[in-house]
Nucleic acid binder design. Structure first.
Lengths: 241, 241
DNA sequence: GTGCGAGAATTGGTCATACCAATAACCATT
DNA sequence: AATGGTTATTGGTATGACCAATTCTCGCAC
């Protein structure tokens, strides 16, 4: 009897923008690392003024979804909360081989799963992208070289093909922990031992398993691939330590 | 070797204001319910422009410290411990079915991998613990009941048996996100449909696969198990929405 | 051709100003 | 005293301008 009428809350337009962008991120349309349009562009796109867009971005920045850099642009951050990565990053810093092994193992599980999901859901565009990256790697390999950036892109492309944005975020945060400390050192190692051909074969096989939509096979090949990488990584650390 | 120097980030002046106001609140100079000076007054007091003050207030608003009402003013909010700052939590708390599905899928990958590793490395003690929990669940199931706490313990025990502390850490943080929002609601659902027997069978089968040290089988059964759970969860959400 | 540095274009950060809309305080009427 | 309108205050939005950091590009020198 008392409340026939509910209180009316006129939504601020910045809130509307916040919701829109947040959805784009959760749906995976905006992936971590992506740069969103400039404030001025967004303003014209949405038909609002720059301050409104700016306020929305400020909120999302405070929430941890975005990161704005003056002159650079505004980027989508990885969503993984600090409770996951904070303790981990400290552990990784000390280069404890045991920790690195454990981390590589976690990555193995995650990337294997990404490959599995990718094989289930990859679109033709996803597959084309994977093949494109394979081709680039093949070229490099023919000269005995290896581009770790392309390598990374390949792995990211697989996660993207899983069409699960949360999987992308979680994996990306794990991957970055390893990438920073190890990947660079691996480059030299690969070249020395002529592993490039083997790596290329691995990548090609994974790609084909995904293209054929064989989840279990894709997962298995990814795990095998990462096992080799981890093995070599361990050797490298043992030699140095 | 790599980082003697930390990246320098010239602090935005809005950040400075945020810090100032946050301190005033934490010191108790600003109590919950208090109205802070108007944006225009603050701007002149601090010797900055209104947009800067406004940005600071926007951030504090998003953080939950302040509450602005057009025409009314800006007030200090009551500080609840519920103030969640993690981006992942922010996504989950809006109960978007799509996000929850994605999260459940991530969990599927992680727990499947945990089961795999557990099957490889489980000690006799680990296996004994799993069997003990199964026995408890069996007792409950005989009465048509289900204890979600024991259920959780079972899953945690498997991760523990993987003997990879990082895996445990990552999975636990993901799991907690789901647990908070869903698990409770599932309890009722299980009872209604007499699923307890099926769940018990799943758990038993997983345990035996681990005990027999059959990684691939354990993983597969875990994924199947969680697939069912996720399916039921989706039904539950669809019914509610 | 390759590498590098200066300059231009882009982009977020700040400021000033104006006006709109919601609120609250005040006041006059009843 | 209660009610309804008036007015001043306050946050919300819009516009335009300029600054500062970054990135890109292009031409120069090697």
């Amino acid at each position: 009897m008392t409340t026939f009428f509910a209180p009316i809350r006129p939504k601020k337009i910045s809130e509307e923008i916040v919701i829109q962008i947040k959805e784009l991120i959760s749906k995976g349309a905006l992936k971590p690392g992506d740069r969103i349009p400039s404030e001025r562009d967004l303003a014209t796109m949405l038909g609002v003024s720059r301050p409104s867009v700016r306020e929305a971005i400020t909120i999302l920045d405070a929430m941890g979804f975005l990161d704005s850099r003056q002159g650079g642009g505004t980027f989508v951050k990885v969503l993984t909360d600090e409770t996951i990565t904070d303790p981990l990053s400290k552990l990784v810093e000390q280069q404890d081989p045991e920790v690195l092994r454990a981390l590589a193992e976690v990555r193995m599980g995650l990337e294997g799963w990404s490959a599995y999901l990718a094989a289930e859901r990859a679109t033709d565009e996803d597959i084309a992208e994977l093949r494109r990256l394979c081709k680039i790697m093949k070229k490099e390999a023919a000269r005995g070289g290896w581009d770790t950036d392309v390598d990374s892109q390949f792995h990211y492309a697989i996660t993207a093909a899983s069409h699960n944005s949360l999987q992308t975020h979680v994996l990306r945060s794990i991957h970055s922990l390893l990438h920073a400390t190890i990947q660079v050192a691996l480059t030299e190692f690969y070249k020395q031992n002529g592993f490039v051909d083997l790596l290329l074969t691995h990548h090609t096989n994974i790609t084909e398993a995904i293209a054929d939509h064989k989840p279990e096979l894709a997962r298995q090949r990814m795990v095998e691939h990462l096992s080799l990488v981890e093995e070599k990584m361990a050797e490298l650390l043992a030699a140095k330590g």
